[in-house]
Write a protein that binds this DNA or RNA. Structure first.
Lengths: 346, 346
DNA sequence: CAGTATATGGAAAGCGCTTTCCAACACGCT
DNA sequence: AGCGTGTTGGAAAGCGCTTTCCATATACTG
């Protein structure tokens, strides 16, 4: 069944030249080949339908054309937006993107980088955010060291905890600015759907939000901070806990947009109107969610651009030391937040 | 900089065995190796931090562990959902997913399959839908033939136009059922945001919708069919044309959910209420859009499952002839559609 | 006990390509 | 004529692995 492929040797033979010459013609070698032979080889290759064997090339050159992209969940619009940015840059550079998904499992992350190393991938972009799990972080760090020792480049999107090039979104300062703007609307009692306690992005956003409230002389009691999954369903489920907590909050901050989405749905289910009864804000500004009604107040992150920046970091010529690209977040107040007025959360 | 990797030969030497034995221990060969040597090799490999070179293995075995996934735009939730399904199955099978994006360019699709072939990818799932472009289709078909001739497997999601295994969603019958249900609500005048005329999914859905209306003795005048981009912005922009067309429609069908999303936003901008003034329905049931207000009536497609099915098609043992997996679409009527009553589209 | 089958180890021939090294030749000089 | 210099072609040595083929050792049969 599997028909034999045309090899370089066959092309060379048919064209009446040596293997070396054929190779030099068919890849961008520095060496010159006379016009005559070059045409002959090119013609023969086309005629025979020659396609270089990428594995053989990778082996002989000791480097591949592969770029890894590690995300938690490609169906999550946060990651798929970043992925779009990464693939655009990588493909423009003629590279091939390998997609790995972790399902938020730190061990799987290590596995994936390991696999990428086995494939002699040229670079990897790790977009999943770090957790507080020390042992997993250490293992990943080791794997990354091995990867770079081998000549590969690594960039992360999010926390610069790994000593690699990093694209760092303004989680803290964005959340802080958001808190101040929300306080500016007149809110005094807040609740936060904080996501998983061990997830650094979630922690940073919570911390920033707290800092912003503190700036305004406001306090965020621990009882008003609800842990939850980092997903739409997490946000949805957290609302029950939130209501049970009787926080009296008039404004709820969910540490990402999809959680805010779930929360808004749950609030509706509980007969609460957004923003009349309670204001809701998120973080990320997921494109697909921009047409939500009421439109979601959030902190906009240029997700695709972040992916592009990460890819560039990893594909550009080497520069000394790990670089950090900071990406600002822009507070966007829309219809899901208003001045407090309704019943709030009793 | 690039430190030398540990090779099998070194492991063999350190363990005092031959290359062959080391290879047999470290991969699942059929050949037996005595417990003693096996332990020695395993220990040495671990101690030296041996990692097999995937390119060398691929070359020697003439087969890789790569599975291609070709989509138009990974940021589009339709594709990212399918991608999630494909990666889950592929990764569970220990394979590595290569993600290629076409940006809806048919030539790029051919390029990607070609690249995958050069990498001796084991299989490829093509999720981008076909167009009416004959020449592009022919080229893709040729490339696919070459790919399969080489032992690779190919599956498509959508139209079974390529002679490959295919996962076919019920575009036609789903749209048809939707039309009947909408007519059942009492609507008599419809408009369709039909997407690009050369895109087969879009055509099928339009055709199905027309058929459903015909079932009910209703007609869809050509003037009520608005061509547009297949995106949120396409749907948004189409509304201006729709209004200019003075169709008098009380119900608008957008051939996919993201277009419906854009259309709903645009209708709001024009001061029209959904569903009071005009009902809107989409197609796909994008997960992220389930919490929209008003909730979008649509035809649910199990997108992740479709990705999984496609992946299975391509990874399962070979069976004779191209197989087709039909996936039903379930009409889900929600709040974005109601009985006609308001002003409609004058 | 010869004779055959079975388990296990190693040598070596590739897999398809890149790249070093050398040879041959054509120049432009002195 | 003799010589460096530059250009172009080819032979061949890998790249790191798998797998065939052979050799040896052991077990089993009648």
């Amino acid at each position: 069944m599997a028909s034999r492929q045309v090899t370089l040797a066959e092309v060379a033979k048919h064209a009446g030249v040596s293997l070396a010459t054929a190779s030099r013609v068919l890849n961008g070698s520095t060496r010159q080949v006379s016009e005559e032979l070059r045409e002959r080889v090119l013609g023969t290759a086309r005629r025979l339908g020659y396609l270089p064997n990428a594995s053989a090339q990778a082996l002989a050159r000791n480097s591949s054309v592969l770029v890894g992209l590690v995300v938690h969940d490609i169906a999550d619009p946060y990651f798929s937006s970043i992925a779009a940015g990464v693939t655009r840059i990588a493909e423009d550079a003629g590279l091939v993107v390998v997609l790995g998904t972790t399902g938020r499992d730190a061990r799987r992350e290590v596995e994936l980088v390991n696999t990428l190393r086995a494939h002699r991938a040229r670079a990897v972009v790790i977009a999943g955010s770090r957790t507080t799990d020390r042992s997993a972080s250490r293992q990943l760090a080791e794997e990354i060291t091995a990867f770079t020792a081998q000549g590969g480049r690594v960039a992360c999107v999010s926390q610069a905890k790994l000593g690699t090039d990093t694209v760092v979104p303004a989680n803290r300062s964005g959340a802080r600015a958001l808190a101040r703007r929300l306080a500016g609307l007149g809110h005094r009692r807040f609740a936060v759907l904080a996501g998983p306690p061990d997830l650094l992005v979630a922690r940073d956003r919570l911390a920033g939000f707290k800092a912003g409230l503190a700036d305004e002389g406001l306090d965020l009691p621990d009882a008003n901070v609800i842990a939850s999954g980092f997903t739409r369903d997490g946000g949805h489920a957290a609302v029950a806990d939130l209501i049970a907590a009787h926080t009296g909050a008039t404004c709820v901050f969910a540490v990402n947009d999809v959680m805010a989405l779930g929360a808004m749905a749950a609030l509706r289910d509980h007969g609460l109107r957004v923003p009349q009864d309670v204001s809701v804000a998120g973080f990320d500004d997921i494109p697909t969610l921009r047409d939500l009604v009421p439109a979601l107040s959030t902190v906009r992150l240029p997700l695709e651009e972040m992916g592009e920046r990460a890819a560039r970091l990893v594909l550009d010529d080497v520069v000394a030391g790990p670089r950090t690209v900071r990406v600002a977040g822009e507070v966007v107040l829309r219809a899901s937040t208003s001045a407090p007025g309704g019943v709030g959360l009793r």
